[in-house]
Design a protein around this nucleic acid. Sequence first.
DNA 1: TATGCGTGGAT
DNA 2: TATCCAAGCAT
Length: 386
Amino acid sequence: MRCRIHTLPSITLQALVLIVYPFFHRIKRGVFTLQLFDTNQFQQDLLAWYRSEKRDLPWRRENDPYRIWVSEIMLQQTKVDTVIPYYERFMNDFPTLQALAEAPEEKVLKAWEGLGYYSRARNLHAAVKEVQSHYGGRVPDSEKEIHQLKGVGPYTAGAVLSIAYQVPAPAVDGNVMRVLSRLFSMYDDITKASTRKMFEEIIRDIISEEDPSSFNQALMELGAVICTPTSPGCLLCPVADHCRASAEGVQELLPVKPKKKAPKTVHLQSLVLSSEDAVLVEKRPEKGLLANLWQFPMLADGEPEAMWTNYAKQRDGTVRNLTYVAHIRHVFSHLVWEIDVYKAEGSISSPEERQAWMTEAQMDEAAFPVSHQKIREEVQSSSSDR
DNA sequence: TATGCGTGGAT
DNA sequence: TATCCAAGCAT
């Protein structure tokens, strides 16, 4: 029997582990977490490492809850290196909670342009206004109140509370789940909310009451720098002695996370319609994909000449010299846009509510998604070629 | 609980 | 080139 198992393909062995594991993990965790895990020594080792090795990041140089909050929103699903320049500009544009609360949404979206997940910016803006009007401009320091703010979920609530106010609340993000999965050799699917809650309970058991800010940040830092998704640096890890996955040699198998589905493809056409020194743009719907960002008119793929002629006609306008410019592919996390780009001259007498003619200078002040930045560049290079 | 929501970089 | 991923949240 033992021989047969050793000759099984490793994929089968993994599958076996995944099937059998859920029935035993709660018992194992009880034994391991509470009895064999040396919490005090773990805290000491982790915090000593963090205090000597932590990266010097802009939001670590200050303790303003507003600034911590902004950094945490920007860091959602976004790498540190990407965030830094955005954070610096944002703090320059909106140095205080009051400044952001009083800013027009256009400016906020423009500051967020290119960062993605734009509802983060609109939710942050709304939440900051809420804090300004309802909490007298002070970011709330209770779990219940801060969690009610738009865009503040369980992770961000815990992060702001612990980092800005030293409240011993868990801040369980992807890093922390990866680290804990390995630390206790847990095969639970980390995409499930129930798993995140389990990790939050574990953190409540092992968090440093003296310095919850450093403890939470240290776990994330460890995940980002040492305990990485692929080829983790166990030889450099300050808490390798505490790590069950490392002892078992299974660190590369963890955490468990199901594969994502392939994104769907949509075929579209976009028209850059020029009149004098302006082009026609429209503001996207206020909900959903790229909400409230600007774009060039875009329609489902079809016969170009008829489609755009009809488009203009419906708005009491004309289109002439319709010319193919380029093909753009833009990949979202859940969607692929395949866009045929056209340009033309023309006019529209009856633009719709959310349409406008913009000059280049005006477009520089409006927020466009990256897909439409690409279109702008293609059209510009197509006209400068001649 | 499952899915929609961006982008750029690493492997 | 394809896939995955990164300090998640809303619905």
